[in-house]
Design a protein around this nucleic acid. Structure first.
Length: 897
RNA sequence: AGGCGCGUAGCUCAGUGGGAGAGCGCUACCCUGACACGGUAGAGGUCGGCGGUUCGAAACCGCCCGCGCCUACCA
């Protein structure tokens, strides 16, 4: 026998060193490296690229775990797996971070200039972008790190330019003067979905707008009262609107308002958009600073007056209010109106206020020249792809959310007034204003139209999500025709969080269909929601925000991964409890000690002994059956993305079947009590079961399983466990399984009688089972050794129902034997009578329920015959149980008296 | 305002038409030759409420209550 590492395995599993070792080995062995020339069928995932500013939070940890489970599982299932990692340049977020860094040294980006600032950002990126990648590696992520991509890579930038120029040529990208969401702090436009709405306590101001001209011409009405939440925008009003059917104001349409504080005259128009029921039924129209008003103005050819500068400070169009911040102006203007007697009243009002999703500054709707993608023509096929099942969401309910958004989609504002990002590949002519686009990689130098060389590239950059939308194919080399693209596109599944279905998932589907003619992924797995560590969603007041890195230090990565998998039930929030991580740390330790135990009892011949079909014991067949079931459970659950189910199946198999029962059952075998052959066989089955269990566990807990597997004397097909195949379906022995399940119930019954009667754990007792069914007696006979060992029984007999053994306490296994334990004068009669009566009470409750069912004629008639038969059998069992319990009680009372 | 989801043991959560489950915590006893990050045996729930469908509902349907999230241009 060769040296076994038994003695070197610690009593307690210590993850830190093991994890370090295997991370290095995986890297060395190129575990994640995909081979586009492989004959195996492809399985592809692209990682949702985290921001370069990011640090691993629980959400990342969950998604990394899920994807790594899939990657490892599919590799073991014989797929050529590509799991492509990467990071996202995160335009606004990164620019903000670097600006803040520079500000610490008193540097403003404008001082550095565009080039200089971008240099700083790139330096920052080189320094910090690895942070989150290393954290993902720390989790054991088996990505193909040789294919790491960054959204600002030259290849991906090429893809961006290709897509932009194509869409522009087709008229699907256009530039125009429209109202957009503007962040006065980031100084850039935002798309609609980059604005988050918060319910805020605001006020509704009722302002009096005098009508221009004589009283009579206005039919006696001298003024209109408008209700607004934003009085300061009065300065930009260019009209007042009423509902054309509103009898009160109908006659005023076409008249003019003399706008207070400005003296400007603005028209009264009729527009369906105005509801007669709300407020006063009169709406002020500020086309440059309100989305609705912009639309109304379009319908009535009202002019637009922009009253804010980029900081949302009033500009020269605001007259004497110029230079005031919007909120200061609000106060001042209401005061001024009040002093003129034109502020009718102010009401408390709850309103939804839009905030920048990057910095939470209240956004300012603002008229400006921006680039847009015309989305509707791209959305139509993307909707269809989900309708016809080319792409399916898991859980399916998210498809509804997707449709809802896609069917009401508005054009996508893609230009950002920042510096960090893909600069818009469009050149403006200083002479004729024509826009020239590049042909290929070379920047244009002359205007397409007038030939002028006075052309300059647009100063804006593209929305970060524009490049993210191309991620599934740009990362594979598109627009070039590459082997990777041929082999691995479309990808198999995208695992992500619901909150970026609009930002990302929908746009990838649109772009994938448009430029590859194929969906970018066949399935979208929307994982359970983990509340953000930074907080607005997770309850930081409770202090239950958990840092996965700290947890990995404390409990080991496998424990964290297993916990996340076990929590990953579909369609529910994840609230991580640290105690549960500790619980799964214990599970790792249990597995570790199971391995130690096995290693103490096996030798080089064990694997062969465990594989031989002959001479297996009842316990062997039982555990092999449970293993086969566990294997099927794991497979079925992972295939359906039910990681919690897979984790549960493994946990209960390893702990409650393998450790609690099988190991205990075979100990006498391993001690040699039943001869060498029996010892050899049991050790063999133990090894084989452990070996396969490690394979089943590996996708979820890669580190500990590799470590144990490396120590097992089994035939290996490669360098390590991750190269093994996922176990194939296995044979089962349902009869033996049921037999041992029955024997285990008897063991439980004896143990219960012992405990309840305060028998010392070390003491042996005598026990008898009575049952009339001879088949059942045979089975119990076969289990005698097990019963003796696990219930500490010295003499065990099985007989037909008959006279009760003297000085015994008893209980009944439902549908099974009456179990007696002899106590020889040690019975605490009072306590035992109470215990039995408790059991009888429970049984009576059950009997009442069953009898209720059977006395219901409809049940007997309408329920399936097998259900009725089953219930009848249960009644019989419970009746006999009660009868036996009662006679047991009487007998004990008899001992007393 | 619509949409979605949740409400099951003290806590965190599975279960989804025919005998209420797991982990942690709790109680009692045990350092039994893999493991005290352990073992054995227990206690603990009218499955949010009310109606309906059904022979039968924790599960399916409706309404209500409570909580959460997403979407929305009523100023």
């Amino acid at each position: 026998m060769t040296d076994r590492p038994v003695d070197t395995l610690n009593k307690v599993y210590e993850p830190a060193e093991v994890e370090r070792k295997w991370r290095a080995l995986w890297e060395e062995q190129g575990l994640g490296t995909a081979d586009a020339k492989s004959e195996k069928p492809p399985f592809t995932m692209v990682i949702p690229p985290p921001n370069i500013t990011g640090a691993l939070h629980v959400g990342h940890a969950l998604n990394t775990t899920i994807q790594d489970i899939l990657a490892r599982y599919k590799r073991m299932k014989g797929f050529s797996v590509l799991w492509l990692p990467g990071i996202d340049h995160a335009g606004i977020a990164t620019q903000n971070v670097v600006e803040r860094e520079l500000a610490k040294d008193g540097i403003d980006r404008h001082k550095l200039g565009r080039e200089g600032f971008l240099d700083s950002v790139w330096k920052w990126k080189e320094r910090y972008a690895d942070t989150i990648l290393n954290q993902q590696k720390r989790m054991g992520a088996s990505c193909d790190w040789t294919r790491l991509r960054f959204t600002m890579d030259s290849g991906l930038s090429k893809a961006v330019r290709e897509v932009f120029t194509t869409l522009y040529a087709e008229g699907l990208i256009y530039r125009g003067n429209y109202i957009v969401n503007w962040c006065p702090r980031c100084h850039t436009a935002l798309s609609d979905i980059e604005v988050q709405f918060e319910e805020t306590d605001g006020k509704l101001y009722y302002m009096v707008y005098p009508i221009a001209g004589s009283d009579t011409s206005a039919g006696g009405i001298e003024s209109l009262t408008v209700a607004t939440t934003r009085p300061e925008t009065l300065l930009g009003d260019t009209g007042v609107a009423v509902n054309p059917d509103d009898e009160r104001y109908k006659g005023l349409i076409g008249k003019k308002i003399k706008l207070p504080l400005t003296g400007r005259e603005i028209p009264i128009v009729g527009d369906e958009h105005v509801s007669a029921e709300f407020g006063t039924g009169v709406v002020k129209i500020t086309p440059a600073h309100d989305f609705n008003d912009f639309d109304v103005a379009g319908r009535h050819s009202l002019e637009s007056i922009n009253i804010f500068d980029v900081n949302a400070v009033l500009n020269e169009n605001a007259g004497k209010y110029e230079g005031l911040d919007r909120y200061v102006a609000r106060k001042k203007i209401t005061e001024d109106l009040d002093s003129l007697g034109l502020l009718e009243k102010v009401e408390q009002y709850k309103t939804m206020i839009g905030e920048c999703y990057r910095c939470a500054t209240v956004v300012e709707p603002r008229l400006s020249k921006q680039w847009f993608v015309k989305v509707a023509p791209l959305a139509a096929p993307a909707i269809e792809a989900v309708e016809d099942g080319s792409v399916s969401f898991v859980p399916k309910s998210w498809e509804k959310t997707y449709f809802e958004w896609m069917r009401n989609i508005r054009d996508w504002c893609i230009s950002r007034q920042i510096w960090w990002g893909h600069r818009i590949p469009a050149w403006h002519c200083g002479e004729c204003e024509h826009i020239t686009l590049p042909d290929g990689a070379v920047d244009p130098v002359l205007c397409d139209k007038c030939g002028s060389d006075k052309i300059a590239q647009d100063s804006d950059v593209l929305d970060t999500w524009f490049s993210s939308a191309l991620w599934p194919f740009s990362t594979l080399g598109w627009p070039d025709k590459t082997d990777d693209l041929a082999k691995y596109y479309p990808t198999s599944v995208l695992s992500t969080s619901f909150d970026i279905i609009f930002f990302w998932v929908a746009r990838m589907i649109m772009m994938g269909l448009k430029f590859k003619g194929q969906v970018p992924f066949k399935e979208v797995y929307i994982h359970a929601l983990v509340r953000d560590a930074e907080g607005q969603k997770m309850s930081k007041s409770k202090g239950n925000v958990i840092d996965p890195l700290v947890m990995m230090d404390e409990y080991g990565t496998d424990a964290v991964r297993f916990t996340l998998a076990a929590f990953a039930a579909q369609g529910r929030d994840v609230k991580l409890a640290e105690e549960r991580i500790a619980g799964y740390r214990n599970f790792c330790n249990k597995l570790w000690n199971l391995a130690r135990f096995a290693l103490m009892n096996i030798d080089d011949g064990s694997e062969e002994a465990g594989t031989e079909a002959d001479g297996r014991s009842l316990a062997d067949k039982w555990i092999l059956t449970k293993l086969a079931k566990c294997r099927n459970d794991v497979e079925a659950h992972i295939d359906l993305y039910q990681f919690d189910g897979a984790a549960r199946a493994l946990y209960s198999f390893v702990w409650h079947e393998l450790c609690d029962w099988y190991v205990e059952l075979i100990k006498p075998d391993l001690w040699g009590d039943k001869g060498e052959e029996r010892k050899r066989k049991s050790a063999g089955v133990l090894l084989v079961v452990l070996r396969d269990t490690l394979k089943l566990l590996h996708p979820i807990m890669p580190f500990i399983t590799e470590e144990i597997y490396a120590n097992l004397p089994v035939k290996k097909s490669g360098l390590a466990l991750h190269e093994e195949q996922f176990p194939a379906e296995m044979g089962v022995w349902p009869e033996e399984e049921a037999e041992l399940d029955g024997i285990m119930k008897v063991i439980g019954a004896i143990r219960n009688l012992r405990t309840e009667n305060n028998v010392k754990p070390g003491a042996s007792v005598e026990s008898t089972c009575q049952i009339d069914d001879s088949g059942a007696r045979d089975i119990l006979g076969k289990g005698a050794e097990y019963i003796k060992k696990l219930a500490r029984v010295s003499a065990f007999t099985v007989v037909p129902t008959g006279e009760c053994p003297s000085d015994s306490v008893s209980t009944v296994v439902s549908g099974g034997p009456e179990v007696f334990v002899s106590l020889k004068g040690l019975i605490d009669i009072g306590a035992e009578v109470l215990r039995i009566e408790g059991e009888v009470e429970k049984a009576n409750i059950e009997r009442a329920a069953i009898e209720g069912k059977l006395s219901n004629k409809s049940f007997v008639e309408k329920a399936p015959a097998e259900v009725v038969a089953k219930v009848r059998a249960r009644l019989e069992a419970v009746n006999s149980k009660i009868e036996k319990l009662e006679s047991g009680r009487n007998r004990i009372k008899g001992i007393d008296g």
